[in-house]
Amino acid sequence: MSRKIYKGRYVVKSDESFVIFIIGMRINKFFSFTKWIPVFRAMGPMLRELYQHPELGFYHTEYLINWRGVTLIQYWRSFEELEAYARGKTHATAWRNFNRTIKDDGSVGIFHETYKVQKNATEAIYNNMPKFGLANVFTHTGVSPTTDTARDRIEK
């Protein structure tokens, strides 16, 4: 992922439907290291697999870290591909391990949200930023007279 700063204003152009999947973990009992560290570490193998196999439908993820945990914003080609991955071996193993070691003991929380984004239903602006989010997935281009305002971009 490039950390190059794109000076000025940029937008994203996409004519595709896609899925935004937000997934994360929350550390509820900080000193329960043996509980939350394995959950945190389970994300790595899944992300490596996804980046190594673009045919699975995964585009990109952004990491957001806070004092209680981590959240990943993922971009997928379709809900069907996300669902198929969730039923696959790597994810199923991580899920089984979570349920075996944590289940409902309250030490670690996990969550996810899924959004199906219809074709031409997004608006994004980036000002003096490295590529982030949708800019890592779709066409990242400078603002033009037809993409100058949020309304212009959402109604393109």
Rank of each mutant, 00 (worst) to 15 (best):
M1W: 06
S2K: 01
S2F: 00
S2M: 01
K7Q: 14
G8P: 00
G8A: 02
F18S: 01
F21M: 05
I23E: 11
G24I: 03
R26E: 13
R26P: 00
N28I: 03
N28D: 07
K29A: 04
F33N: 04
K35L: 06
K35C: 09
W36C: 03
I37C: 03
I37G: 02
I37L: 15
F40N: 11
A42F: 05
A42M: 07
G44H: 10
M46D: 01
M46Y: 00
Y51N: 05
Q52W: 06
E55W: 11
L56E: 04
L56W: 03
G57R: 02
Y59I: 01
T61L: 12
T61C: 12
Y63D: 11
Y63N: 10
N66Q: 10
V70C: 13
I73T: 13
F79L: 09
F79W: 10
E80H: 08
E81A: 04
L82H: 03
E83Y: 09
A84D: 07
Y85H: 14
G88N: 13
T93S: 09
W95N: 12
R96W: 09
R96C: 03
N99H: 14
R100V: 07
I102H: 02
I102E: 01
I102F: 03
D104P: 01
D104E: 15
I110H: 03
T114S: 12
K116H: 14
Q118F: 10
K119G: 05
T122P: 00
T122M: 15
A124T: 06
Y126R: 08
N128L: 07
K131W: 03
A135F: 06
N136V: 04
N136C: 15
V137S: 12
H140L: 12
H140E: 09
T141A: 14
T146K: 08
T146S: 12
T147V: 07
A150K: 12
D152C: 09
D152M: 15
I154H: 13
